[in-house]
């Protein structure tokens, strides 16, 4: 595996409503690797994730993607390369298939049935789901649909914002298995925010511990993660 740097954060800070959320963050995310961002709620985990696909802007500092400042990459292009799955799954009106056609309509290209089937399988959904109304799916299935929809942009990185928090224990574990599979099969860089240490262990990636907007050093992270 080529271990090049996918994302690099240089002195990144974020202030919201006069309150510092992230302070002077310096981090590197390697291509094809897995990362778990841990920390108490309100520590700035989600904000950090949202800076990477420019859902929000840092107040200062630079973020590089493949060595290029993300401000110089058209934002719609960046977000196709850096997919995101939210804490609460979002499904659009219509069937599962309608939902999976959205990435194509955004790009303005004809849908590729084979690609859709592949994304569906990789996300752990059966083909028979295609004709089902998306609103009728269980939360776990909705989250898988969100995963499949993000995959249709052929992303290089997948940002997961507490993707398992709305799911029950078993469903969460199988979803994490699917995420691991995506990393193994597609070589996707995975950056997942969670507050559950067990989920970090299942993902089996590097742990980044954030507290009060700063990244703790490796030693402290290990001690926190063992709690």
């Amino acid at each position: 595996m080529v271990c090049r740097v996918k994302f690099e954060l240089i002195n990144v800070s974020k202030i919201k409503n006069g309150k510092p959320i992230l302070r002077n963050i310096n981090l590197q995310f390697l291509s094809g690797s897995k990362y778990t961002i841990l920390g108490p709620s309100g520590s700035g985990k989600t904000t950090l994730l949202r800076l990477l696909n420019r859902m929000e802007e840092p107040s200062s500092g630079e973020i590089l993607f493949d060595g290029e400042n993300i401000k110089n990459i058209p934002v719609t292009k960046l977000r196709k390369k850096v997919g995101m799955v939210f804490q609460i799954p979002v499904v659009f009106e219509g069937t599962v298939e309608d939902n999976l056609l959205v990435p194509y309509s955004i790009k303005g290209i004809p849908p590729d049935k084979e690609e859709i089937k592949k994304a569906l399988t990789l996300s752990g959904l059966k083909e028979s789901f295609l004709s089902q109304r998306a609103m009728d799916l269980s939360v776990g299935e909705k989250q898988r649909l969100n995963l499949a929809r993000a995959l249709l942009n052929n992303p290089e990185v997948l940002l997961l914002d507490e993707p398992t928090s709305a799911l029950d224990y078993e469903t969460a574990l199988t979803l994490l298995d699917s995420v691991n599979e995506l990393n193994r099969v597609l070589g996707l860089t995975i950056i997942m925010v969670t507050h559950q240490v067990e989920h970090m262990r299942i993902l089996n990636g590097s742990a980044i511990y954030i507290e009060n907007g700063t990244v703790l050093d490796k030693k402290t992270t290990q001690s926190r993660a063992l709690i």
Partner: peptide, 20 residues
């Protein structure tokens, strides 16, 4: 709002995200 954000995260423009 969440639906709009999901659209944006897929690489949609603001107009595409707000179209519905």
């Amino acid at each position: 709002r969440m639906e709009i954000e999901a659209y944006l995260a897929l690489g949609a423009t603001a107009r595409q995200a707000a179209l519905s």
